[in-house]
Amino acid sequence: MTSLLITYIILVGLAGAGAILYLLRMLGLVQQRRLVRLQRREPLVPVDTDSPVDDAAQQVVDRGIESIEKQTTVVRRLLIPAVCLIIVVAVGTPFLPSVPGTMVSVVVAALTVIGGIAARPTIENAICGLVISLSKLVNIGDTVLVEGHYGTVEDITVTHTAIKVWDWRRYVVPNAKMLDSTFVNYSLFDEYLWVHVEFWVSFAADLDVVRETAIDAAAGSDHYVDYEEPRFWVMEMGKEGVRCWVAAWADSPSDGWSLANDIRTELIGALRRKGIDTHCHHHALTGPSPLGEMVRGR
């Protein structure tokens, strides 16, 4: 019995050591991939603008590198103690019959109360942070839209995800909420964006002229990329007006932001010069704000 117990303890220890080495190797590979991805990505801004900070792009990259390294360290500090705890439990399992049942019940109940009540938010956010870190759904430097906040992911800690909003505010989201909510990631697989702008015209307008004007407004922007010609659609025939869309390609979310602004600005002037009336209840041209959220000018 003793020899079997010693063999069991040795096997459990070897399995635990192997698991720790494997986890450390995988964390190193994940960290390396994220560092390479971060270095290749530029610019790391949701809106192209002159920064009040000298060499802001490099500062963002440096902060991202520091955040990735810190994140890997935190994950390592969570996983290794967890694996060690599992090893200790596994080693101690054969000795449980010799421990009084009352003592085991008291210990389990105390741990349950502490973990379930006092530390529940921290544990929940830590586990969700681990899931986010190991998944590929969100990475530092990604351009995202979370609960109407448009910006770039600046930091992913063990408990929170920090998003640098387009106007330089920081929007901090608990990891549990981040994992549970629906959000848009403009950089998940690529950064190309098919930007669309919505606007309304009256039924008296010549749609051929409207189509030509909208396409010219998109094609004339410096941020338009000619992967294909801009597209125009009539989306709805309302009671008192016609809802139209024009769409064109941009190379990145920041270029898409500027492209949408260029299209709206040019459309306002061009439609006014050509005497084309917008709908009386939709007098303001509308479009994605930011990049996908429809804002209706009523």
Rank of each mutant, 00 (worst) to 15 (best):
N185A: 01
R272P: 08
G287Q: 05
M103P: 03
T122E: 11
R37G: 03
Y224P: 00
Y8V: 01
I86G: 11
T2Q: 13
V83M: 09
I140M: 00
H223K: 10
A260E: 14
P97W: 01
L207S: 02
H283I: 12
K136S: 15
S3N: 14
A176E: 09
D226Q: 08
L259Q: 04
G13Q: 09
Y8M: 06
K177T: 13
E191P: 02
S254G: 06
V295I: 12
H223V: 03
L271D: 06
L285G: 06
M103I: 15
V60D: 13
P253W: 01
T286I: 08
L35W: 00
P174D: 06
E212V: 05
P43G: 02
P174V: 03
E198Q: 11
A260T: 09
Y22S: 09
A110W: 06
I9L: 09
V153M: 03
I263D: 02
I20P: 04
M237F: 15
V246W: 01
L38I: 01
L5F: 09
S133P: 04
R63S: 13
R211P: 04
V146A: 10
L44W: 04
R170D: 10
R120G: 07
L285N: 07
S67E: 06
R37P: 00
I156K: 04
G148V: 00
V74Q: 14
G115Q: 03
R231V: 13
T49I: 14
A17T: 15
W245D: 09
K70W: 12
M1R: 10
S135P: 02
W166A: 12
E198G: 05
C84G: 14
M237W: 15
P121C: 03
Y22D: 06
I10K: 07
V47G: 01
A109T: 13
I163T: 04
M235Y: 06
S133E: 12
N175A: 00
D48T: 14
I263L: 02
D255H: 11
R33P: 00
H223I: 01
S98W: 13
N261P: 03
A218E: 01
G64M: 04
M235D: 12
L179P: 01
A19N: 03
V173M: 06
G297L: 07
R272F: 15
V75K: 04
L21I: 11
E42Q: 15
Q58W: 08
E154K: 14
V88T: 08
F232R: 00
L145Q: 06
I127M: 10
V195Y: 04
H196M: 08
A19G: 05
